[in-house]
Design a protein around this nucleic acid. Structure first.
Lengths: 332, 332
DNA sequence: CTGAAAGCGCTAACAT
DNA sequence: ATGTTAGCGCTTTCAG
């Protein structure tokens, strides 16, 4: 591999001039710059990014740490982040924490060690180790969930969205909606549960703990939770499920039991997904502006990186949209 | 941020000893090692990975460059890669090339500059710039698709799988199956088309170009292709679609036209997906061992990284499995 | 078993 | 406008 000094020798200049010419920094005689570029091309020179990063004490790389790569919400977020990052000259490295605290910690550590320019993360809640990043003065933006450490965040009105979804279930004529939400330590899960409870109380029903299940946000757990709810002495007649991944599990469980949403039971899920309108029946959802969430987080991060002066954390909260298809409807 | 010399001072030793103690390398007096660890902990010391990488001239990070993050095939592959990587002490950074050559090139460049230990990639075919990696002596394993540059690869028997799928369509009583495949420059797409053609010829039909569509492997393109096929003078009565993402588009188009698979038309897709059994009707698929593909690629890469001696490229080809659900069946 | 010293490849101050 | 020099933080010879 050709190094900068090889290019310098070939072009008959110093290494510093090569660096300046290739990075368009400072002032270089146009003719010289051209000679340098030619020499670099002939040698197939590629700057060693590791050396550059060490010297510059910074990187043009972001880490995007998401909770679950199979959740379409996060893949859409990733698109939003990437588009803006590219526009601003950053590369983004995607890390899949898989709702697992150890993996998340590992990626956070890699991000710190590799001195990334910034981190966007949907934190697992059990005390995500964000404070280390702040100590290392690496800007962090959280999405979807918040943490104790005060950093920028982009959220949606989960509680309001969940409430609207559950109200819609009541309005459609269902009487005993259940709620399948995420882990107790995830505030997104908690807010969606609260929204559900808001609607239950508004409908002047008594919230029953037997109609609530906490899971790890994954397919299998939702499948089990649905079966468990169906096995209750007084089973629910409708379901509010707190994300798209779990909707798959719930749908499967209902199918297993021969129960058809939109006919035998009601079903609404948080998050839209590419397949949501194609399942049987088409799924009613609370859609999040996932792409915008990613794009917004990316913008906040860029600003944070550019300003050297510390500044109060900024919080952006976006709205959800109820999309009524068929799974929530009640015949007759 | 504490540096190694700070730890050294606090522990009353040299930087070299700190390095040795923390990396468990060479021989360090146990008592000293303990003192070093204590000092490091007190200072919250984290080694600067960039500096370490520069000195060591290597990294413990892989780049996994996939074609489309929304395709469940690739997310499953990613799981397989990550599990093995973690087991062997590597971290994997996921890059979404989005079926876009520019993005792919960019990530390849970042991977080279950041001196990753290895690359696993599902290459976009229009001359992926793999040769640069080889020049930089960074090991590469391709998955799903191959390139000209001779490197290790993990593939599936695409042609056989496609043939089996199409034969199944004929066996179910359909007479004019169409094929929606990927770009002409992608050999996976080409092989799936060939498998389709094999079956057509076996059935003693004449392959009609009017029944074949090339797309970019994405939802929208498949949607359009399906509508276009339906608009032919002699439209097909069945569809073989070359990946899961496109199945979504085809399904949508058929639904738009009021055509129900498993009743009005036949439909088989390459790739299984979490939602495949939940759509209406459940989708018949040619399942790829996606997780195993990832895991196998990861194993090949590890071996390649460990052996210093060059060695002929290795190619592993795994088998597919036809899973008959309902979308391919013909009533009566 | 430990320390001193060199140096990975690059960029940024400082000279000229 | 260009070259010289120093040094980013770490690991790894090489001495002792």
């Amino acid at each position: 591999m050709a190094k900068i000094i090889d290019v310098a020798n070939r072009a008959g200049v110093s290494a510093a001039t090569v660096s300046r010419a290739l990075n368009n920094v400072g002032t270089v005689d146009p003719a010289l710059a051209e000679r340098v570029r030619a020499a670099a091309a002939e040698l197939g020179y590629r700057p060693n990014g590791v050396a550059r990063n060490l010297r510059r004490q910074r990187t043009d790389v972001w880490a995007l740490i998401i909770s679950d790569i199979e959740n379409p919400f996060f893949t859409a977020v990733a698109r939003g982040v990437e588009d803006i990052a590219r526009e601003r000259g950053f590369s983004v490295l995607l890390c899949n924490a898989d709702e697992d605290k150890h993996k998340e910690d590992r990626y956070l550590q890699v991000a710190e060690q590799e001195q990334v320019a910034g981190v966007i993360i949907s934190p697992n809640m059990r005390g995500s180790d964000i404070s280390r990043m702040v100590q290392a003065s690496i800007p962090v933006v959280t999405i979807d969930r918040t943490v104790r450490t005060p950093v920028d965040s982009v959220m949606v009105h989960s509680r309001a969205g969940a409430r609207e979804a559950t109200e819609h279930l009541f309005a459609s004529g269902w009487r005993r909606p259940a709620c399948i939400t995420g882990p107790e330590y995830a505030d997104t899960a908690e807010q969606r549960l609260q929204g559900y409870l808001d609607a239950v109380k508004d409908a002047r029903r008594r919230p029953a703990t037997s109609l609530i299940r906490h899971t790890n946000f994954q397919v299998e757990a939702a499948h089990a939770a649905t079966l468990s709810l169906l096995g209750e002495r007084r089973p629910p007649d409708a379901f509010f499920v707190a994300n798209a991944t779990m909707a798959l599990g719930a749908l499967q469980a209902l199918t297993d039991r021969g129960l058809k949403p939109g006919r035998d039971v009601g079903l609404v899920a948080f998050d839209d997904a590419p397949w949501a309108r194609l399942v049987d029946p088409p799924l009613t959802v609370v859609a999040q502006p996932a792409y915008d969430i990613g794009a917004t987080a990316a913008r906040l991060l860029t600003e944070r990186i550019q300003r050297s002066a510390p500044q109060r954390p900024r919080h952006v909260t976006l709205s959800t949209e109820l999309i009524v298809r068929q799974s929530s409807l009640r015949p007759g």
